[in-house]
């Protein structure tokens, strides 16, 4: 009996959360166009989510690319195919690692900050105050942040990919002495603009929507206490990371089969 009750209550909770999330999504998307005209708000959010994530994206991209170059060289040498290091680095970065790792870092760096910020706004009753002044918090608080995420994550993913390829180049050509011409020529031959780069970009945009929705929803619906906000922040990082990895599999299956 207790088991049945537990099962029922937890399913109801899940359904309720899903319903709230759906409500949230349906009320934030109509508010999105307004945030384009609030250009200063949008710029500030781009600064907070994009520019401040830049250092971590740059260093992570460089090191991921260097590791790819090193491992690729180690493995491909045994097939006498070292020239393919460039192709391997570029394709794995453009198709998978660029969008996914950038999104994971973004969820940790920017998503958690968004949740904490919006959650604190709620717990200090700033959101209610906005409503009192007939300002819709959806338009004023949530929509600019969502749009900023959608704009910045693809940009960060592109910077990550470029940095990674540069790191792979440093290791493979600069350190391990691979021929420079072969490195670029092979890569140029195998990487397709439409098939690979555009698909990677679509992935980054999808991840941006996912991360932004999760982190803003968690902040908006957090329990307005210090404990509630901290839990919401943790949930954001966990849900967004898992969501990115799961969505990545689905998108890969749709794009590259």
């Amino acid at each position: 009996m207790i088991f049945l009750r537990y099962l029922g209550s937890s399913s109801l909770e899940v359904l309720q959360a899903l319903g709230k999330l759906a409500f949230f999504v349906f009320s934030v998307f109509p508010a999105l166009p307004y945030s384009v005209w609030r250009f200063r708000l949008l710029l500030k959010q781009i600064y907070f989510t994009g520019v401040l994530s830049l250092p971590i994206i740059l260093t992570a991209g460089l090191f991921v690319g260097m590791v790819l170059g090193l491992q690729g060289h180690n493995i491909l040498t045994s097939f006498n195919a070292e020239e393919a290091v460039g192709t391997m680095t570029a394709l794995s970065l453009i198709r998978e690692l660029g969008p996914v790792v950038a999104a994971l870092l973004f969820a940790g760096r920017a998503g958690s900050a968004l949740t904490a910020e919006v959650g604190l706004m709620k717990s200090t009753e700033q959101l209610s105050a906005l409503e009192m002044m007939a300002v819709d918090p959806m338009k004023f608080v949530v929509a600019p942040r969502l749009l900023a995420c959608i704009i910045t994550l693809p940009m960060l993913a592109m910077i990550f990919i470029a940095m990674g390829i540069f790191g792979g180049y440093l290791v493979a050509v600069g350190w391990l002495g691979l021929d420079e011409g072969a490195f670029w020529a092979h890569m140029n031959d195998q990487v397709d603009w439409h098939e690979d780069v555009i698909n990677g970009l679509i992935k980054a945009i999808a991840f941006a929507v996912l991360i932004a929705i999760i982190s803003l929803y968690q902040g908006y619906e957090s329990v307005p206490t210090s404990e509630g906000v901290s839990r919401a922040t943790t949930r954001t990082v966990v849900h967004a990371s898992l969501g990115v990895l799961g969505l990545d599999f689905i998108l890969t299956a749709l794009m590259f089969t």
Partner: peptide, 18 residues
């Protein structure tokens, strides 16, 4: 940030992809 993105995209378009 925008400038860096443009450089990255130009690099990927011209040097990396076909």
């Amino acid at each position: 940030l925008v400038l860096m993105t443009l450089i990255a995209v130009a690099f990927i378009a011209l040097k990396v992809s076909n």
